[in-house]
Design a protein around this nucleic acid. Structure first.
Lengths: 125, 125
DNA sequence: CTAAAACCTGACGTTGGCGTCAGGGGCAAG
DNA sequence: CTTGCCCCTGACGCCAACGTCAGGTTTTAG
């Protein structure tokens, strides 16, 4: 087994990425289109990913769930990849963090509201 | 002042509802269209609301923020209004509550992720 | 070898909560 | 009177993250 083959063996196709991350194949293609994900190509044109594409896609999902859009995520990706940031990026990180915190607070308020309603409707059937 | 006049004095127009709840006039009309909100009409056709439309609209916003859509909210409105529910509605309330809780957990995970990233980029400038 | 499974590139469809424009009306202040 | 503010009804526009269909190639299992 050559070094090249050993390296090639670490590449997976889009279906495996999708299954591994729990998203659709279409979603993975979409991420590439948005510049979130880069893939090599096999001679026949199929996308080939390194295995760490899976946790990366999970990270995307997490950020999407937190309300960030593709563009924001691409802007944050350099920090994620390199651990290296300029002041502007650090400010953006904190801004997003605060937005998510506020959103979490809103959710908690909604939760309290519903719990209150549940308590009333349970004692008041 | 007659009783009727006293009652009429308690009715406000759409602009006041919108300002009071911090949403657009368009949004309030939309809520009516979705069956979330009912309004009386003045002889000239203007919508007239009781003042408690304002907290009600705030409640809608809170539920929207929690990821419920108009239809779900209309389904939950009877509980909210009357405090009376059947088994199906109580199940729905709990299901939504659990969904929101899961969402809150996701947000917290995203927050932890970002905080971790912030810590790294701060010590690693 | 062959059939099924997986992959490819477009490109249009969906969903929801509004924004926004078009065109028109009423009504109190100056 | 007219100016300006608020209100009305449609109806099209928008955005974002995909779903989905069409029509064709590649890879894999038996």
């Amino acid at each position: 087994m050559t070094v090249t083959e050993a390296a090639a063996e670490r590449l997976i196709r889009i279906g495996e990425v999708a299954r591994g991350a729990g998203v659709s194949v279409r979603a993975v293609r979409y991420y590439e289109q948005q510049g979130l994900l880069v893939a090599e190509r096999s001679p026949s044109g199929q996308r080939l990913y390194r295995p760490d594409a899976i946790p990366l896609v999970r990270f995307f999902q997490q950020m999407f769930a937190a309300g960030l859009n593709s563009r924001r995520i691409t802007e944050l990706l350099p920090c994620w990849d390199s651990g290296h940031t300029d002041a502007e990026q650090r400010a953006m990180l904190r801004a997003e963090r605060d937005r998510i915190q506020a959103k979490a607070d809103d959710l908690q308020a909604a939760l309290d509201r519903l719990d209150e309603l549940i308590a009333v409707t349970d004692t008041h059937p």
